[in-house]
């Protein structure tokens, strides 16, 4: 796996948002704990969710949202726990899409819209475009963070609020770790993507899910930012 082991993280975030703001048609700054996002066919919305304190975010389709409203059920909804920041893409490739974002506590939502064709054209011309991002808080000890969905050619930047020992592994190694067949130390000695610092940049080479296993003596925040490239667009971005 091609590894750009230098730290560009802060710069990357700034550049990402500049890019989004230039192309984005609309930015909503409306503090509330629920947000309905309507996306017209042909458009992709990038929903940015920010919360001062780690909280659980639920993302719901309209039928799920009505069930939540009537029965309080979040069954079947997409759940992100302990997050403080998220960028979630909502592409409306075939038809209009509506999603509801529900998060307890003081939350800020920003939505930036991009034309899908325009985005693909830019990617094909070689531009790099923000695809997804997440910041979450993790406990002291060894934590697992899934990096997904992945395609070949994505650029992933990881940033931790303090130095930590980490490895990036495939699903089967996660299963072996969970089962106690392999320890963190064993996996660390075998892993190609690893380190003991406060950040890491690398590019994906295939579609396989990757998991970040991160060992920290104190609770920290873990941030991941994923950029799409020409190569990822050619694989079906």
């Amino acid at each position: 796996m091609g590894c750009l082991a230098h730290r560009l993280f802060t710069g990357l975030i700034t550049v990402s948002f500049m890019v989004l703001c230039v192309t984005g048609a609309l930015a909503i700054r409306n503090p509330e704990s629920e947000k309905r996002v309507d996306v017209k066919k042909g458009i992709v919305a990038f929903v940015e969710v920010r919360s001062a304190e780690p909280a659980t975010l639920y993302i719901m389709y309209p039928t799920q949202y009505s069930k939540y409203k009537t029965a309080g059920s979040v069954d079947g909804t997409l759940e992100f726990r302990n997050i403080t920041w998220l960028i979630y893409p909502v592409p409306a490739m075939l038809e209009d899409q509506t999603l509801h974002f529900v998060m307890k506590g003081e939350t800020r939502f920003d939505v930036v819209y991009e034309d899908i064709q325009d985005r693909i054209n830019r990617l094909m011309k070689g531009e790099e475009r923000l695809r997804a991002g997440m910041e979450m808080s993790v406990e002291a000890g060894i934590n697992v963070v899934r990096l997904t969905p992945l395609l070949p050619g994505l650029k992933i930047a990881l940033d931790f609020s303090k130095d930590a020992r980490f490895i990036i592994i495939k699903t089967i190694d996660l299963a072996r770790y969970r089962k106690g067949i392999k320890t963190f130390d064993q996996l660390y000695s075998e892993a190609g993507l690893k380190g003991s610092e406060s950040g890491f940049n690398f590019s994906t080479t295939d579609f396989e899910d990757l998991y970040l296993l991160i060992e920290t003596p104190v609770p920290i925040r873990v941030k991941s930012v994923i950029h799409a490239t020409k190569e990822s667009a050619e694989s079906g971005c």
Binding site: Y61, P62, T63, P91, L94, E95, Q97, T148, D209
Partner: peptide, 16 residues
């Protein structure tokens, strides 16, 4: 394993 029913663009329909 995916965050929504596949293919992604059919997710809203499938959910219903």
């Amino acid at each position: 394993a995916n965050d929504k029913p596949q293919p992604g663009p059919l997710a809203q329909k499938w959910t219903g």
